[in-house]
Amino acid sequence: MRQQSREYIVILFIGAVLAINYPVLDLFDRPWAPFGIPLLYFYLYLVWLVLIIVLIAVVESSEIHKSEEPPKPGALESESVSRSGDSSGHPPAEPP
């Protein structure tokens, strides 16, 4: 994930926490009912849905960075094993 996406995610998290807690939440605790749905519920579910949509946009638009790819199961096994014997402290010849 790109640095930018990571920043978006942190901002999203903070924004979501603020949106569903006091005092913002208190603003929406009103006896009004848009579309026949009580405002409090309408607001909470709306925030939820918007959060999901933004998450889709952020996550699906960012490609995986190479270094973030998980090691292949087989490769991981043999790789770490093959280096573990190298207790003399020589660094591996090449970086991944």
Binding site: M1, I9, V17, W48, P70, L76
Partner: peptide, 20 residues
Amino acid sequence: TLMAVLFWFVLRRIIRITKV
């Protein structure tokens, strides 16, 4: 849901450690 937002930072780390 909030935790899911943080998956990439927290969960991925835990999974990598667990696999290794």
